[in-house]
Simulated assay, not measured.
Amino acid sequence: MQTYYDTRITEVGTDVADLIDGGVLILFAAGAPPELAEVSVLHAVTSGPTSEPPPVGALIRVGPVEAKLTAIGDLAWAKIADMGHVVVNFDGSPVSNRPGELNASAVDAGLLAGALRPGAAITITG
């Protein structure tokens, strides 16, 4: 199994839970501006991203919570590589409505929120 991306959570913004309730997770590399850090899960990359994006169907894991990627926006992987930033919509959509975003299968918002802790891994494998 290939690992496309592996990162560790460093901090969880104060407003992240509100977005998680709506199925949205925003990742931003540690050092994000304060106004973005409030709504983001800050992280430090341990490996990746790979030069090629993962395929639809690859697994995204946030701690113990697992989902399948259902769509990958045209610019999403480049944004991850350039800024460590991406929005993940856990809505199961087969089409990404925004070019810089990922879509994944729906997950339980409470479980996802509970998984967002400093030190927790976020990985994309396939």
Results as ranks from 00 to 15, higher is better:
P64D: 14
G119T: 11
G48W: 03
V88N: 02
L42E: 13
I9V: 15
G92F: 11
V39G: 06
V12M: 09
A58I: 10
G31M: 04
S93G: 05
R61D: 05
G110Y: 06
P99N: 08
P55V: 11
R98Q: 12
T70L: 04
W77V: 05
V95C: 06
G48R: 04
A109E: 05
D82N: 12
P118V: 10
R8E: 10
R98L: 15
V41T: 13
A109L: 07
R117P: 03
A115V: 13
P55H: 09
D74T: 14
G73A: 07
G73P: 02
A81S: 15
E66S: 15
H43E: 12
K79D: 14
G126F: 04
G114A: 10
G48T: 07
G22A: 13
A76K: 01
E11Q: 14
V39P: 02
F90H: 05
P118L: 10
A121Q: 01
I122T: 09
A121H: 05
G126W: 07
A104T: 07
S93F: 07
V39M: 14
S51F: 08
V56N: 07
A115E: 02
Y4F: 15
P54R: 05
G84C: 04
E38H: 13
T46D: 12
H85E: 06
H85A: 07
V41C: 09
